Amino acid sequence: MRSLLRRVIRDGKQTAVLVTHSALDALVLADRVVVLTHGRVVEQGSTREVLGRPRSPFTARIAGLDLIPGVRTVGALRTDDGTVIAGRDGQPGGVDGSGRGAPGGGGEPAVAVFPPSAVAVFAEEPHGSPRNVLPVRLASIEPRGDVVRLRAAPREGGPGWLDGLAADVTPAAVADLGAEPGSLLWFAVKATEVEIHRAG
């Protein structure tokens, strides 16, 4: 099916609209994508841009990335509850395109995006180099080939944006952690692994 559709689209004689929940289908077949959530367009653009730099939690989930919403500050993102997520500026040329950043250090809606493979998981709060250390409750354990995806939920009273964050670890790491749904864990990610860019 993919090869037939690819031939129809690539010969330049036909335009096709494909509805899918598969990031792979979008990457292989589409030049442009439109992402709908609750019947509303939340993102659109080139396939590479939308899936590589998602601006909504739904798109990030499709692309297999973690996303935290907030507002941009100098070298970081601040969430609604005041948590500061350190990261790199993912906007080409700086926040405003000039290389200088936004006046006053930001304040515009932004997202912090990183892959689950960049997340380290600890049973006790880690100390040292990770700038971003998040207390979570383990919601689910999902085998995915040679890794295990640990899916987070907020601890009691914790911020809702933690819900669904993922970490990819080895089966041995899960055994060492003694992790099971309901376990209280810490997700840690280095600032160099986090890209911050505009939302919406």
Score class of each variant (00 low, 15 high):
A23H: 08
R100V: 09
D80A: 15
V74P: 05
P130Y: 04
A118Y: 03
A173C: 10
L51C: 12
R198P: 00
P92L: 09
A152Q: 01
V133N: 08
D163I: 00
G158L: 12
L4Q: 08
T73G: 14
A191P: 02
A175Q: 10
H21R: 11
G145L: 01
L134Y: 04
D176G: 15
A16F: 10
V95C: 12
P116K: 12
V189K: 06
T83E: 02
R137K: 14
V34F: 07
T37Y: 06
I62S: 05
R78F: 02
W186T: 03
T170C: 12
T59V: 05
G107N: 08
G75A: 14
V95S: 10
G12Y: 01
S98A: 09
P115F: 00
G158H: 10
V71I: 09
V71T: 14
V74M: 13
G178H: 01
R61A: 15
R53T: 14
M1S: 13
I62D: 03
I62Q: 00
V133E: 07
I62T: 01
Q44R: 15
R10C: 00
V42T: 15
L134D: 10
V19M: 07
I196S: 02
I196W: 01
D81Y: 02
E108S: 02
V111Q: 01
V111Y: 00
N132C: 03
L77S: 07
R131H: 09
G94Q: 08
T47M: 05
E49C: 01
A167W: 11
L18K: 02
R10H: 03
L65S: 10
L18A: 01
G107K: 00
R55M: 12
G87T: 12
S183A: 15
S3W: 10
T83M: 12
T192F: 01
P92D: 01
I141H: 08
Q14T: 13
G45T: 12
G105Y: 05
P130V: 08
R10Y: 02
R100P: 00
F114H: 09
A30G: 13
V194P: 02
T20A: 10
S46T: 15
V19E: 03
V50A: 06
G64I: 08
I196C: 05
G64Q: 04
V174F: 08
L5Q: 06
R40F: 00
V74C: 05
D80G: 10
L185D: 00
T192E: 12
P135R: 13
A139S: 11
V8R: 06
P57H: 08
V17Q: 00
E180R: 14
A23P: 14
D176A: 15
D66N: 15
G82S: 07
N132R: 01
V74S: 14
G106C: 07
A23L: 02
K13Y: 01
D168G: 08
L184V: 05
V136N: 06
A76H: 07
